[in-house]
Write a protein that binds this DNA or RNA. Sequence first.
DNA 1: TCAAGGTTTATTGTATACATTTGCGATACG
DNA 2: CGTATCGCAAATGTATACAATAAACCTTGA
Lengths: 224, 224
Amino acid sequence: MSKASDRAYAHIRSMILSGELPAGVQLGEIQLAESCGVSRTPIREALRRLESEAFVRRSESQRSFVADWSLDDVEDAFELRAMLEAHAARRAAHRLTEAQLHTLRHWNDRLDQTISCDSPDIPAFLEANRQFHAIISDAAASPRLSAMLAGVTEQPVVLRTARNYDVDNLRRSWREHDELLAAFIQRDGEWAHAVMIGHIRRAFHSYAESHRNERCMPFADAAE
Amino acid sequence: MSKASDRAYAHIRSMILSGELPAGVQLGEIQLAESCGVSRTPIREALRRLESEAFVRRSESQRSFVADWSLDDVEDAFELRAMLEAHAARRAAHRLTEAQLHTLRHWNDRLDQTISCDSPDIPAFLEANRQFHAIISDAAASPRLSAMLAGVTEQPVVLRTARNYDVDNLRRSWREHDELLAAFIQRDGEWAHAVMIGHIRRAFHSYAESHRNERCMPFADAAE
DNA sequence: TCAAGGTTTATTGTATACATTTGCGATACG
DNA sequence: CGTATCGCAAATGTATACAATAAACCTTGA
């Protein structure tokens, strides 16, 4: 895992997420190679990977740029995510083991902890949230579905601005997870499906709201 | 488009589809380089691309092999395709232009032609079918959705065995397309959604049936 | 005969040189 | 002053040499 191409991938990705490489900027292979301390070969591999994950786009003439996500793009990704993750939840309802249910509850308790104390710990919240959704994705037992979900979940813009969500929204997420758990315990796939659609679509509107308020800011500080 | 890596990609892909490279076989970079008449560099790029499209899988030690699709894998892909393409149909119902509707009808008429004469022209049928579905994918106006759809539609095993479908099944496809058209003309997204789910799921069962009958055959002749 | 260890060989990862293509600017002409 | 064309510069594409790593094999000892 300590291959040069992996390090280059992680490095470029984090520079995009942090805003150090803003949307629209050209990504020259030579420049990145120097920046990462490797040759162009692993850089090329990292760029292809980032391109397939929509962090980077390529012009007709094969030049690479940091992708700029319009609000429409984000909405598109959220709509697909709602459909895919709801499907995952429905499948998971019939397959989750007792141990997995227990772990889900554990992460949702943790979610509560991170926002209940005086100073909410947003990074910890995001991590627990990630774990919660990862268990559902796994339990759906469809590798292709998991891969697709990962593709629409990892959105540069959203990851960069997630920290701006207010605590009310985070608490609402926690409660929705709780309802999801109830549906899982009843093994009610349709219930879980419905709750998940609402959960993701509300998250989009929270993002859109937050985005409207915070637009035209210089740019936020690093999130990762 | 005449880049070495593109040619290598197309060459390897067609060798997998034709069965010249059977499932499970190791894909050595050097061997492929000689086979394609290029160096290892474009071969590596082609392999990564084929891997992301699930034509190729890589072992933990980074060696590449022709992917072998179990029946479960195929069912998984069909289930996702049914969901995604039904979603595309629902969106398309509200967006298809008159010109697109006309073109859809054109391709479905063509579909009828290819199976109505004495000797059905299966390749022509598959091509017309591809065009029909491509228009719906485009009309859904979601690049991500189109990309995902392409990923679950291009299944090596299915493409290789599609020619075995009997004419009754092909005719049924044609009729289902006709119903889809009726739903589009009425701009009834839910109707289109339902028809598409049935269309894809029936296609899976046709495949599974045909697969049961034709299993253990030496291997079929080239499909492309 | 089997197992463990080390050596050999095959395969993938990386760096670099060179070829090819594209973009951009300067210059000349209308 | 605008535009078109030529040419240089910069970026990407490809080949190849070398490095690192994993698999295969062979030897050796119990």
